[in-house]
Every structure is written in structure tokens, then in C-alpha cells.
Design a protein around this nucleic acid. Structure first.
Lengths: 339, 339
DNA sequence: ATTAGCACTCCACTCCAACGAGTGCTAACA
DNA sequence: TGTTAGCACTCGTTGGAGTGGAGTGCTAAT
């Protein structure tokens, strides 16, 4: 579709623009070592590329900047993955060779490394409950009618919440139920837990039907996931160094989005496995219409666990970020909690 | 020290400045209903107030703005606490009359309400471990040499972390130790836990000295607090609406601070009980030299538990924020988890 | 097909004058 | 003696004119 020369010129323009954040003119391209044509020739090609929708002109007599479509073509066909230096590689790996850490901490660290290395904002989505199974369940009475319900998963993740104990329940009934619960439901995926609970309970405890109701309500309450503490942000201030955010209003709309957990979760939902690049308006959220989001899912022991995303301006260094995310994904696989 | 008239004028200037964020001139003060002097007279007083250090002039021929000292005097002597409307009161209270929530959520909600109502940024510090006691301790094996250690406190707070089990320990030894641990140390304040552990253990288990070592190391590991997930921010974007932050660089230094948990914790450490107003450079951190931080400690059942802080520009609405924090503190006392 | 040359466009920057808000001072006044 | 009117002065802000420069599109020459 594009001639070799057009590809070369497009790629040069985008590379330049990523570095400088300023419209790229024909002269500066021609001065590069890898393009040996005169500015005039390049101008002709640039006009063609603009007609094809790969470039844009902020105004007559300015240079060209890439359009969304231009970035897309660049990412799909032209971009060179930037080599990751040994230093960076070691920095990433060192976090995983150290002592075992709590899952949430690993994730938080992951977010931090990535934002530091890229100078963009990183957003990490923790383990999805879909892929976790029950390891252990427990109720710790607090006194009064309150208790803490604790759910430990096979990945070492711990969920806890405070529940109210129905007044008509005896302590030993509860203990018995918890024991039963652990016996029968250990190893069941979290998502199936509730339905399995009701079916098993109906079978086994049918005879005490009326007493069970309060108990079931209690367990139901304990298993309803309360919060999604699965989202970690890091390096949000990095984005402020980008020239496209020298205007406070733009910062505000972006940060409002970052503060709104549900909106972020929606952004991350329905992402495919593996690496995904969403450029500008390809993200269906107005606030990041001039941002790009690069996401990668990560896995432990082949089980998909979460998603890590790097958010930067559309003019972000795709090659570098994609390479780093690649290393990162493979490093996380080294980690095997609970084994 | 200040004459009645000087107080009236100072207070008018500060009120005006808080509203407008612009230097206040003599004419605009004189036009207010409550000051019945001519601009000239007011100018004289303003000159005096400037000499005394309560006002500043950005440049000749601009109006006056309050100095740190001026704000301090205002807060200590002049400010009127703004009445909290019934609507606001209800909004605050409604959060506590609802169903019992997990502690962390209550705190997060608290932060959100306060930032919404004030349009400033709120920072909430969760329960301090100093004032919590052990309710229940448990180890849940994950398979391999890993286990999750769970500590439940009397306030319903749950701490958990992944630990490595020393290879020379038998399962039943551990179970026994945990039982012993719960028997002897339940009710002991978290801060004393470690020393009590070692003294009790030395006494009781002296005879198995060598086996105990691995076990003690395990418990020690489990009790070392790993993360401080006690800090919640809300409404960080609110500060962007303030005209003093129209410059991105200022936003950046402030947000860098907000992103750095340890620095924030330092800011909050060594705060006295009750309400505290820190104006501008009274906070010993450069990044908030032109911000004010109003903090209040809150308590449950008379036990001091945490701190809530409102961060805004020095030109913040002290009267309103202080009133709201007052209501807030007393509302939280209604809450009684674990009773 | 490529390139040199040239006229043209448009932004960014600087300079400057006009403006206005506010001050300090002085003299008049109650 | 305290208060106020008047006035000259200061200084930041605003808007318009002028200028330089980067970059383009077109044309004609190679």
C-alpha cells in the first residue's frame, strides 16, 4: 500500500516527533543520515501521506505530525522494538529473584518499575478472581454480632471483610458450617463458590432448612466481594513532564479519569490476552483521546492473572514500552507463589 | 495587640482573598457593608498591618494579600466557623448509619466525603497499630513452604502477609505454636506483641530451645508489618481547580509529594491530638509551602485511631473546613465496630 | 523522477502605548 | 487628632503593529 520510501519517511517523521513533540519539517528529515532525498522530494511525499490520512498539519506552514492512523500504521508495520539494556533487564528481574513478597506488593512494585523506566503512568490490574480458587475460609468473631470473614486463595491472595452474624445462630453451628465449608469447597474457583455453596448446602443440610437460612445469608455476605483493591497506579506525575500536558485543564480531565476506579476498570475490561496497543480515540473514553494505552496481560504458571498498562501521550515511545512490557511479562512468569 | 478596627480590616481582607484569590484593595474593602471607613483610612491601616507582618504586597500598586502570619492570626482569633448545613450534616451522618462496612472502606469513604464537600484534597490515615490489640492470629498453608499469616485486631482490622515456613518445622508443631500464641497473646497491643512473644516463649518453651528458633523466626516474620496500606487520598484533582495551581510545575511538585507515601506519613507523624492547622511553611515540607493542612484525629470508643487531613492552598476556607472536620470527628465516634 | 528556487503563509516573539487598579502622600476638614 | 478627598505615581495587564523564521506549495530546470 505504501511505497518503501513513503514508509521510510513516515517512520522518520514519527520517530522525530516522538522525540521532539514538535511538528516535523521536510528539511529536518532530509538532514537525517538514513533519508537521502532533498527536502522538496520529501515534501511531495509528505503531501501524499497527508492525503492518505497518515499525517496532519496543525496549520499551513508548520511541519507535519502523525495522525492516529499514522501511529497505527507505525505500530503495526514500521516500529522497531527498542532493545532493553542489561541494566534494565536486571532491574526488572531483581525484583523477582528477591524474597517472596505479598501478591499485592509484587503488583505495586511492578507498577513502580514500569513507570520509572518508561516515564509514563502505569496502571496495574491485580489478579482477576475468575482464575482463583478457594484455599481456606475462616470467620473470626470480634465480639458483639460482628465477625471478620477471611478468604485465602490458592495464589496467596487474602480477602477479608466484616460481617454481621444473624442473632439466631449459635457459635458451634457456625464453626461446624465453616468446617463443612472448607471440606467441601476447597479448590473451587471463587466465581463458582456461591452457586456451589447453595447446591451443596441444599443437599447436605436439607433437614435443618430453617436454621440454615441465616447461616447461608451469613456466608453469602462473607463471599460477596466488597472492594476492588486490585488497581494500582504509579508514576501519575510522570505525565506532567510531557509537553502535551502543559495545560492544566488537560491534566485535570486526565487525572479525573485516573481517580475514578470504575471508569478505569471499564477501560481495562474486555481486553484480549497478550499485548494490546490502543491509540488515541481507539480508547473509548474522551479523557484519553490524545493518550495511548499499551496493555499486556501477565500470567503465573500459565494462568492469566492480571493486566499491566502503560498510559502516555499518543506521541509515546511505542518501541521502548512494548519491549519493556515484553520482558516484564516473561519475568513475572518466573514467579510462583503458593508452590 | 491589634485594634478592633485593624482586626475588622484584616479579617475582611482575608475573607475577600479567600473568595477571590486576588490581591484586595482598599476600595473594595471600603465598599463592604461592614466597614464604614474611607479607602484612605483603610489604606493607612493596611500599611500598618503590612508593617506588623500580617499582610503582603505582591508589588507596589497591587492590593494586599495575607501573609502566613496573617492567616495564623485569622485562624487563631478572627475566623468564624461556618455553620454546617443540615444537608451536609445528613450526608456525613448517612454514611455511618448504613450497614457496617469494612474499616478500610469507612476510611476511604470518609476521605471521599470530605474532599467532595470541601473541594480540597483529603488525606486519611487509618488506624494506628499502636492502639490496636491482637484478636486472632492464624497461619494458612498455601502448599510448598509458603503460608499466609493473618492477624485480626480488636477493631476488626485484618493484616495479612505471605511467609516462608522454615523447612525443619513440622505441621503439628506449627499448629501447636499458633494455638499457644492465641491463648497467651490475645488482647496484647500490637506494638508489644513481639517482645511479649519472646518473653512468653522463652519461659514456656525453653526446653525445646533449638526447635523453637525456626518457629520464632517464622512468627517474627509474620508479625513484622509489611505495608502501610493505611493512607487514603481523595480529591487530588480538586486542587487543580485552584487558581494558584494554574502552573503545571507547581502541580508537579505537589503531586510528587502526594505520590510519595513515606513523605506523607512523615507529615502526619508527631501531630497532636485534636484539631491542628498548619499554614504554609509551618508544614516542614517545601512542596506544600503554599498549602495549608488541617488535620483532626478521630477516635472510636475514645481510642484514638487515625487522622484525617484536608490539604488546600494557604488561601483555603478555614472556617468551613474546620467546622466540617468537627462534625466529622463526632460522627465517626458513633461508629463502633467489634462491639 | 528529482531538485533548486522562490513566493507565500502563519506562528511566535518583541516592542510599545494605553489603561486601570491601587498606592502613598499631602492638605483640608470635623 | 483622627478622618477623608485629591492627586501624582507605580506597575502589571492588554492589545496591536511589526518582525523573523520555519515551513510549505508550486514551477521550472536538471
Amino acid at each position: 500500500m505504501l511505497t518503501e520510501r513513503q514508509q521510510l519517511i513516515l517512520s522518520s517523521i514519527i520517530d522525530d516527533y516522538i522525540r521532539s513533540a514538535e511538528p516535523v519539517g521536510s528539511r529536518s528529515i532530509s538532514k537525517r543520515g538514513d533519508v537521502s532525498f532533498s527536502p522538496a522530494t520529501i515534501r511531495n511525499e509528505m503531501a501524499d501521506l497527508e492525503e492518505l490520512g497518515f499525517l496532519e498539519q496543525p496549520h499551513t506552514s508548520a511541519g507535519r505530525i502523525p495522525s492516529i492512523r499514522g501511529y497505527r500504521y507505525y505500530v503495526d508495520h514500521l516500529m522497531k522494538r527498542e532493545a532493553v539494556t542489561d541494566n534494565e533487564l536486571n532491574a526488572i528481574r531483581s525484583f523477582f529473584t528477591g524474597r517472596m513478597m505479598e501478591m499485592e506488593q509484587v503488583i505495586q512494585h511492578a507498577a513502580m518499575i514500569m513507570s520509572n523506566m518508561t516515564n509514563y503512568t502505569s496502571i496495574v490490574l491485580g489478579p482477576d478472581s475468575v482464575n482463583q480458587a478457594l484455599k481456606h475460609f475462616q470467620l473470626v468473631p470480634l465480639g458483639g454480632d460482628k465477625a471478620v470473614a477471611i478468604v485465602v486463595t490458592n495464589t496467596g491472595h487474602v480477602e477479608n471483610r466484616t460481617v454481621t452474624i444473624p442473632p439466631d445462630l449459635e457459635m458451634n453451628e457456625i464453626e461446624q458450617a465453616v468446617r463443612f465449608f472448607n471440606d467441601k469447597l476447597s479448590g473451587v474457583p471463587l466465581t463458582r463458590l456461591k452457586s456451589r455453596l447453595f447446591s451443596e448446602a441444599g443437599e447436605e443440610m436439607g433437614r435443618y432448612a430453617d436454621q440454615c437460612e441465616g447461616l447461608l445469608r451469613l456466608l453469602d455476605q462473607a463471599l460477596t466481594p466488597e472492594h476492588d483493591g486490585r488497581l494500582f497506579l504509579s508514576g501519575t506525575t510522570n505525565i506532567l513532564t510531557q509537553p502535551e500536558f502543559k495545560d492544566v485543564d488537560k491534566v485535570k480531565t486526565l487525572f479525573s479519569l485516573l481517580e475514578e476506579t470504575p471508569a478505569l476498570l471499564r477501560l481495562f475490561s474486555s481486553l484480549p490476552q497478550g499485548l494490546q496497543v490502543r491509540i488515541g480515540t481507539e480508547n473509548d473514553h474522551e479523557a484519553i483521546a490524545n493518550c495511548s494505552l499499551i496493555t499486556a496481560t501477565y500470567a503465573i504458571d500459565g494462568q492469566p492473572l492480571g493486566t499491566i498498562g502503560i498510559l502516555g501521550p499518543t506521541r509515546m515511545d511505542y518501541g521502548r514500552v512494548i519491549s519493556l512490557l515484553g520482558v516484564f511479562g516473561s519475568s513475572l512468569q518466573l514467579l510462583r507463589p503458593g508452590q
